[in-house]
Simulated assay, not measured.
Amino acid sequence: MSIPNILTLIRILFIPLLVVCFYLPYAWSLPITALLFALAAITDWFDGYLARRWNQTTPFGAFLDPVADKLMVAVALGLLIERYDSLWMTIPSLIIIGREIVISALREWMAELGKRGSVAVSWVGKLKTAAQMLALFMLLFFTPGSAGGDAGLSLLYISAALTLWSMISYLRAAWPELVRSV
């Protein structure tokens, strides 16, 4: 078991801890939840960096890393949808979750065709991930209606726009295969 894979597993183990902290009835629970999310987001970057730098990429890591990311983001968005109880939180959250499902299925299908490289992560996807992680941290840390919460919500909308942009890019790259299979 390599260090990058251990970091990915730690990220998955953070998810139930994140949920428990979110619901604790203490003033410090939200900052701790946000910090746990931030630590998990940092391990996302760090495990990939180490796997490439130390030449420790594995099929297990290639499978588990995106699963851990999507689980972490989906759970955080689910918690925030409940917390904000607002259409304005629900819309970008569902866009982000829906895109993740579509692109995961698209990548899996393209891999079956031996063409996964045509839907590899792009710079827009990396920018989307950075904006998304920062937005989720801010939304978990600050209370709804506060300046920090409003800034986090604005950043979530930017992230949702980048999400749609990257999804369109991936679908455009896969389009020849999609229409050929109809």
Results as ranks from 00 to 15, higher is better:
39 L>H: 01
47 D>H: 06
34 A>H: 09
9 L>E: 02
173 A>T: 04
96 I>T: 06
84 Y>L: 10
13 L>S: 10
116 R>G: 14
53 R>H: 14
24 L>I: 09
72 M>E: 11
18 L>W: 01
67 V>R: 10
19 V>P: 03
119 V>W: 01
113 L>P: 11
159 S>L: 07
108 E>P: 00
171 L>G: 14
89 M>S: 06
87 L>K: 08
59 P>E: 12
132 Q>T: 12
121 V>W: 02
88 W>R: 12
66 P>A: 13
22 F>T: 02
72 M>F: 10
15 I>H: 00
56 Q>N: 04
129 T>W: 00
153 L>W: 05
1 M>D: 09
43 T>Y: 06
168 I>K: 14
179 V>E: 10
177 E>Y: 15
176 P>L: 10
162 L>C: 09
31 P>T: 06
38 A>Y: 07
167 M>H: 05
168 I>C: 06
16 P>T: 03
40 A>E: 01
70 K>C: 03
109 W>C: 03
60 F>D: 00
32 I>G: 07
14 F>M: 13
158 I>D: 01
75 V>R: 01
52 R>M: 04
137 F>N: 06
132 Q>V: 08
35 L>W: 14
79 L>P: 11
69 D>S: 09
89 M>R: 13
5 N>P: 02
38 A>V: 05
53 R>K: 15
138 M>W: 06
57 T>M: 13
63 F>Q: 10
161 A>I: 15
16 P>G: 08
87 L>W: 14
121 V>P: 13
137 F>T: 09
61 G>V: 04
107 R>I: 07
49 Y>G: 02
50 L>R: 06
124 V>G: 01
75 V>K: 01
